[in-house]
Amino acid sequence: MIIGDRKSLAEILDMIKDCRNILITGCKGCVTVCNVGGLKEVQVLASSLKIARKKEGRPITIEENLLERQCDPEYIAEVSDIIHNYDAVVSMACGVGPQFLSEAYPKQKFFPAINTKFFGGATAHGIWEERCAGCGSCVIHQYDGLCPISRCSKSLMNGPCGGSANGLCEISRDVVCIWDMIVKKKMEQGRLDDLLAVAPAKDWSTSRDGGPRKSIREELTQ
């Protein structure tokens, strides 16, 4: 899923400093699962902003809303009746949400409350880690299910580098060297020879180097 962190209250307060009446809209998709932009988080942000504005002596009216998903036009359409009742709309979805909203309602102002960070999963309650870089050409089968693109600090296709020590990456003691894990797994499985083959340089044209990407499924288009 897409993982994000909420922006600081100071940053959000600055965005809405001229507003007296806003809508905060959450998303029931990824951001609900990673506890950053679902119903509870919408309530907490709304309450926090109202406290801040009451303290300033400039109270703000905040309506709360939750969309099924903010990355599909049919759900974005659900707020068409109310969207222009506010000075601005704060989206708690990933970066896709405020853009879809802006495209659907060009006269309204939309602010992102979330910093979208990566594709990942929960490794423990409250802890999420990156597992995919969305590079557009998956190679994890060559590395026994461990992705060196997203999990190696240098995205090395041939590793480890000299910065690997005691299973950790040189950039931080909190970062596991994925190449250490790949080598250990290959040894356990008796397939260390796989690593004798030099992996060719990765074709990054399927990633961001190829510009904004699009996926078209002819069988679904209408």
Binding site: K40, Q43, V44, S47, S48, K50, I51, K54
Partner: peptide, 11 residues
């Protein structure tokens, strides 16, 4: 108890 309950009391 939820964060929201505590904040609402303050609010």
């Amino acid at each position: 108890v939820d964060i929201f309950h505590l904040l609402t009391a303050i609010e």
